[in-house]
Write a protein that binds this DNA or RNA. Sequence first.
DNA 1: AATTTTGTACCGAACGATCGGTTCAAAAAT
DNA 2: ATTTTTGAACCGATCGTTCGGTACAAAATT
Lengths: 193, 193
Amino acid sequence: MAKQASKQASKQVHVPPLLDLFRQYGYDGVSLAKIAQATGLGKASLYHHFPGGKDEMVETVLATLDQWLQQTALAALEGEGDAQTRLGRMGDRISTAYSQGQKPCMLAALMLGSAKDAFQPQVQNLLRRWMGAIAAVLTADGMDSTLAQERSEEALVAIQGALILARAMADTTIFERTLQRLPQQLCRSSSSA
Amino acid sequence: MAKQASKQASKQVHVPPLLDLFRQYGYDGVSLAKIAQATGLGKASLYHHFPGGKDEMVETVLATLDQWLQQTALAALEGEGDAQTRLGRMGDRISTAYSQGQKPCMLAALMLGSAKDAFQPQVQNLLRRWMGAIAAVLTADGMDSTLAQERSEEALVAIQGALILARAMADTTIFERTLQRLPQQLCRSSSSA
DNA sequence: AATTTTGTACCGAACGATCGGTTCAAAAAT
DNA sequence: ATTTTTGAACCGATCGTTCGGTACAAAATT
């Protein structure tokens, strides 16, 4: 009884170092030797916890990321306040999760290299739910549904782009500025062409 | 005389397949075997053209990208028309270079994995000049210098983010929408908080 | 004009190292 | 005593790289 539970728990224990590796090095850049060193486990122990090898490790991290999205990022969208304040709360959670822009997004990292096809469905699902939740906040604020969807795309574009640029320029203020700008940007009134 | 010239030329011949590989697979994801297959050369022949190995190949591609930025993207900013039309022209060049968002940006790909530290200076220099040119167009249009710099950051954030999201969602319209929105977004009048 | 030299392009084979993955018996924990 | 966990050796494959050598055309020499 407690065995399976401990096995599941022990998997969760090793998720943070795995997340750190995959988001910074991508799928192809992470070797089992690096994983063993980062987790402090031998390779055999890794295959005890993750019989599916590297792929199962990524899947586990993706599942944890899915939980984080639901319980942390999207949870910030529910509560009192108008759309801008809700989106601002989400921005705070995001800034924390990405260490003020110092750490890359694992979803983006996974879409490069040989892992792309394998994990694209999970990544798509995660991003889609994220965008859906943002669009829901905007429509609840009275925005047109189609426009809200487009704005939610804008939101993730800004977040992902800010992560890329902040890392490349080694300037976290780019990320912070983008997040701070985001609520106003999303809630602005549309100016027709 | 013509020997050195031909050697330089032969390097340029192999740049397109190299660019395609590095931008889609990243540094760690590209093996010499893949490069040999893509270029049609043997692995040993690759070391004849690029004695410095994989690193020199990346450096060569980066130099070509630098030329593209200068002669294609930034060249579109010079010419007649106001800031919005100039930025629109640049957007067209960008869309073509990235195959309407189907192909990733090599600069972003290089900032992941073990290659990050090695090529970050070149990437930073390239992005900085790009942002500087955009900011110059905006200031020439009468925008405040500080605001123009911030807007140029917005521009590259949007481009990079759109590339990431379009690839992850397998939806090139995200990229096209972002590019189309960009000129107005950059030239908008600032609304104070 | 014929021959030799030079330099470039190219490749097969192999190097040591590391890759992801497996096996298994000892050790640790229950 | 039984189960869980692990270290270490090992697998075939692939990694980036290098070496020895061939083919060929232009340049230099005779």
